[in-house]
Nucleic acid binder design. Sequence first.
RNA 1: GCGGAUAUGGUGUAACGGUAGCCACGAUAGUUUUAGAAACUAUUGCGAAAGCGUACAGGUUCGAUUCCUGUUAUCCGCACCA
Length: 999
Amino acid sequence: MYLRKLLISSKNSLQMEYNFREVEKNWQAYWAKNKTFKTEDTSAKPKYYVLDMFPYPSGAGLHVGHPLGYIASDIFARYKRLKGFNVLHPMGYDSFGLPAEQYAIQTGQHPEITTKTNIARYREQLDKIGFSFDWDREVRTSDPGYYKWTQWIFIQLFNSWYNPETNKAEPITALINKFRSGTLTIEGGWGQVWDTLSEKQQSDILLNYRLAFLSDTMVNWCPQLGTVLANEEVKEGVSERGGYPVERKLMKQWSLRITAYADRLLTDLDQLDWTESIKEAQRNWIGKSEGTSLKFKVESSKFDEVIEVFTTRPDTIFGVSFVTLAPEHELVEKLTTLEQKKAVEEYIVFAKNRSERERMADVKKITGVFTGSYVIHPFTGKQVPIWIGDYVLAGYGTGAVMAVPGHDSRDYAFASHFEIEKLIIIQPPVDWDFADKSYDEKEGKLVNSDFLNGLEVKAAIKKIISVIEENKLGKGKTNFRLRDAIFGRQRYWGEPIPVYYENEIPKVLNENELPLLLPEVDKYLPTETGEPPLARASSSWKYEGKFEYEYSTMPGWAGSSWYFLRYMDAFNDKEFVSKEAAAYWQNVDLYIGGAEHATGHLLYVRFWTKFLNDLGLIPVSEPAKKLINQGMIQGVSAFVYRLVLTVSKNPEDNDGANTLSLSDLPPVFISEKFFNILKENKNNEEAVKAYLRFANETGAINDRIKERQRKTIGNLNFGDPKYLQVNSLHVDVNFVNNNVLDKEIFKNWREEYKNAIFITEENGDYICGSEVEKMSKSKWNVVSPDLMVEQHGADCLRLYEMFLGPLEQSKPWSTSGISGVSNFIRKLWRLYHNGDVLNISEEPASRPELKTLHKTIKKISYDIENFSFNTSVSNFMICVNELTELKCNKREILEPLAILMSPYAPHIAEELWNKLGHTESITYAKFPECNESYLIESSFNYPISFNGKTRFFQEYDRSLSKEDIEKEILTLDQTQKYLEGKTPKKIIVVQNKIVNIVI
RNA sequence: GCGGAUAUGGUGUAACGGUAGCCACGAUAGUUUUAGAAACUAUUGCGAAAGCGUACAGGUUCGAUUCCUGUUAUCCGCACCA
């Protein structure tokens, strides 16, 4: 068998098919050796900066989805070089992060080692695909030479405040001067003479202004990960990485004051050439809403308190029938009356212990409690009850709302549940049924609203705001949904925050003391007292030997918020980037990456860019002019279906406490057909019985189970589907071929499957289910690019990934079409060869050959400029098909074709270029220009349509006038046939396009 | 619920408002081959044909896959943000 294969392959090599393995290896070595893609820092050429989103080097390596964007950006970078640009196209690694640390916790291996290994693997994979990265500029965020500058930027943030008057960041010293001189009032009752305040007091005041600041904040605490998470690291109430529950917790934390930039982050979006969906996602995330604050006086003989609410609908003030406070609201305790004390306290405990996930999962479940107190309505003077409800978020607005159940669906639901009065103050459409839902629209005339009666909503809002402001009850206000970014992580593998504490005052290190190196620790876990892993560092790890450092580290996005700048000047140890480099490279011209970074990375990098720009350190205020989001390449997961029988004594019992688990039985897997039968057939009594019989016969049921079965199962109704469940389990796609499972490999996969029993299709095959999902290790559906390169070559992988469809569209990975691309490459090769010999003619090209070439030049140029890489691949195929048909082997045609191909399939292009006699790399050749004169035809084959439907074709000279064509057309027999004797109403002739005859 | 995107053969997809299905995959038949694979040739939206066909229903237009309105489905993001 082996021998035969060998014979065949040697026979093939005799035919001298294109040997991609050898060619690709050679050129990759050539590029590395000659530093072909090294970028000059200065150049007479115009600059162009093409950047891929920073990869996190995960242990799983690259899968076929990752290179999609890299291939696209590489094509563009190579194209721009051919067009005469000085192209910066770097690559590096976002190498701090959770997974390496989780691995360290499990194995004790230092995350640095894990990270290095993973990076090496990434590099190896990237190199195989033939990217034109300038590897001399590679950066790693976990490198002290890099994170020194991340820490440096943090210090700049700490030493800055946001001046609302100039609307930019300024040195904190400017603020201190304002306090000193009394230009600015010191808020919070500290006294007004700055220099009389203690250092601690001054520090506390400044923390309210610094862009990097320490404060008590409600954070997303993830106990399993032992750290705080940012809002966008939490998805559906669980951690994005790992899927662990997250709870709200009050903690002293470092944060960045991104909210200061909210408005600029919002308005500057308009200038960016980014996809609408990303811009929209950012707009939503920033969540600007304009409204007004409004004060309600609490009715009390004992104290003088005011509840301030934020509303965007002040016009509905006369519809207020209660006020709701968030459970965490500071006035809750004070406002609770003696009678309500117990109920309120119970509720607060309930609300606190309810995890974020629970709270989100049952948004529909309405919970709340009455405080027993009332506020006075500012206009009617009536009593309005104060409630507590967890539908009000502590972190937004003032943590209190004025509830207008008639015109706000959330208030409506709350009021319905607790039977609170609903007032109608806007005239809804005639058939509106308030028993069903509230009327939330901002349209209609106001009623029952005293001085607002008869006004339209918009006018009413205007009027009420002026009345509120006149009476000093509140003022117009803008709120943002965006929260300050929590910056501390109670983790090991991140940049140490360059801060130490002297008498509880946080102080930053001096610039010359950077970097603050990550200390060694014995374990990567929190200490017994719950302090972050850095607290485990040796006792000598102290500032000046005596002051404790900050123990939390920076989040994953710190290093990635400015990396595009570092590539400009990757190894500068004097500055994070030199003024000259920043001035030359400006910002990224083309940024390609996944849409999943829409709100995290892309918002933070914009924030840091604006900040550095404010300080005059860089000349741009946005990181990337154009952004393209490549679509996700999804995996096609395979499933096996495992039967699980659970029986409870009491059918009403849902909690599983009385469940009889039959886990002692060998696992049973049913093929797809049976799965479908079970799914459709609700009554599965037969299936359960058959299963038990089967288990019995195979001796799988042991005595213990038999006993319980006798006791319990006898009385149960098997018709209830909950007794027999089918669990879908992911199975490694590599065990599956055309949905058929390799049963033996599967059995050896895991110990528990060793005795697995398969219920197969008639032919003995076990058919797996399949589903399109995200490609990930945990779903066992990862396809690696290495395998593709090994089998088909890098050029083929590059072309195929582009051929799959539009770059921005998500699609499941399927290898089925790759042979078409593979054939194309061989066909291209044959164009230049006769058998195994290069066969190039120096004769001038014929007119049809030139036409094919120039048509292709035109299309490819258009496609690249429009990032339509899929169509360029088919255009190459058309071109090669046509040239093959013409038996063209002219240098005049094939040389430009090689250049045209080189951004897409650089290896074969270099090889052909070299064989054509060039000694320099094709990288810096000149992209061919389209000569339109070759494309012009003397005549045009007009489609002749009747009422818009094409019936036949007629060729006319291109210069023939509309009138003449019209005359000619009418003389044709065909025309008369379709006219059926009628006179045309109208004849439309579009020159060199179409003729349409209207009957 | 809000926002964004998408919808075309068996499949991936292509069409500046102007011939719907380019280019591939797959399939069918044939040539070659001990067989398989590969290569090559032909056919391949549906329909016997007239004709009908771009998710569905309207509209604008001489002409709509393309523009507009509404509906449905799918995917993605956000979600009690007052």
